[in-house]
């Protein structure tokens, strides 16, 4: 599905509107006050040797005059942990639940912006306040149709705001699933995914058709490889293809049977406007109607519960 029913959109937009108007909802204070053991544990895990966080002697003479917590730990203090207690409700919960219900079950964080008004000191116990700041959409994204939901958490000590975080997620409708979401047989025709090709399959999972681009000389290349044959650079980047293409050649496979695919099926070499060719199945088109020069557009098909394959369907010229 590529659109949102107007009634569904209206319901989502109105809910978001009401939750934005609700403003900020305070949550529970940090379970533990800011403390040295948790700071040291964090610093060791991060490989952070900054003495301002753990070395009392340095800290006393340092810019803060005492031990302070790493500012990026701000969210850590109010994480729910494993205690089993239900986190305090926030204005975001309803909105995310409504999006799930409307089929926007996929979620991916897109932005995290933290502002630190001051560093936290040992013994302080921040309290989070959460407000929904916006919801925009529906937007067509590489992952599928979705809404961007943005919220802001402000942490207070007493009533002094000490830090803020803007957080944005994309809630999206995952690429089309079969009628039953039950586990399917694994698709038997798997590619080898390695260091040189993982970016492509990762892109496919996100609804992007990626073409390797040499970060040195800009040459596009498909199939990709570890070294640029033009300039020898091993710095690899990629561009996201427009998704348009044209059938350059094709075959209709009848025999022998191929596990995982029903015969007859069409495999094409597709010429992309970006200048490279790629092999893929042509779907949603009778084999007899496929022809060289036919315009096609990429879509992404879940072959099983894990594996997504880019396929091509007829497009308007």
């Amino acid at each position: 599905m590529t659109t949102v029913e107007p009634a569904v959109h209206r319901r989502l937009a109105e809910l978001a509107e009401r939750r934005i108007e609700l403003g900020e909802t305070r949550g529970l204070p940090a379970a533990d006050p800011v403390n040295l053991p948790m700071i040291r544990h964090w610093a060791e895990a991060m490989g952070d040797t900054n003495p301002a966080y753990t070395d009392e002697e340095f800290a006393a003479a340092g810019p803060h005059g005492e031990i302070v917590a790493p500012p990026a730990m701000i969210q850590v203090w109010t994480m729910p942990g494993r205690g089993g207690g239900r986190p305090a409700p926030t204005p975001i919960d309803d909105v995310l639940a409504a999006l799930d219900e409307a089929g926007f079950t996929g979620v991916v964080a897109t932005d995290c912006r933290q502002t630190y008004h001051r560093y936290l000191r040992l013994g302080e116990r921040p309290v989070p306040g959460t407000r929904l700041s916006g919801m925009t959409g529906p937007k067509t994204t590489a992952l599928g149709l979705g809404y961007f939901v943005t919220w802001v958490i402000t942490w207070y000590v007493a009533d002094e705001p000490v830090a803020e975080m803007m957080f944005r997620v994309l809630k999206f409708r995952p690429p089309e699933r079969g009628p039953a979401a039950a586990a399917r047989d694994p698709y038997p025709l798997r590619p080898a995914v390695g260091r040189d090709t993982a970016f492509f399959w990762e892109g496919v999972r996100q609804g992007e058709l990626r073409i390797q681009k040499c970060a040195g000389c800009g040459t596009l290349r498909h199939p990709p490889g570890p070294v640029c044959p033009s300039c020898r650079s091993t710095e690899r980047a990629h561009v996201v293809a427009s998704g348009r293409g044209e059938v350059f050649s094709y075959v209709v496979h009848h025999a022998p049977p191929v596990p995982g695919l029903a015969t007859p099926f069409v495999v094409a070499v597709v010429q992309l406007p970006e200048g490279v060719r790629i092999v893929g199945n042509v779907v949603e088109c009778e084999p007899a109607k496929v022809e060289i020069g036919m315009p096609v557009r990429v879509t992404f098909r879940e072959m099983d519960d894990e594996f997504v394959l880019p396929v091509w369907s007829p497009a308007e010229s």
Partner: peptide, 10 residues
């Protein structure tokens, strides 16, 4: 790997 997943296997 650029051909097998699409059934281009013979």
């Amino acid at each position: 790997s650029w051909h097998v997943p699409h059934g281009l296997v013979t």
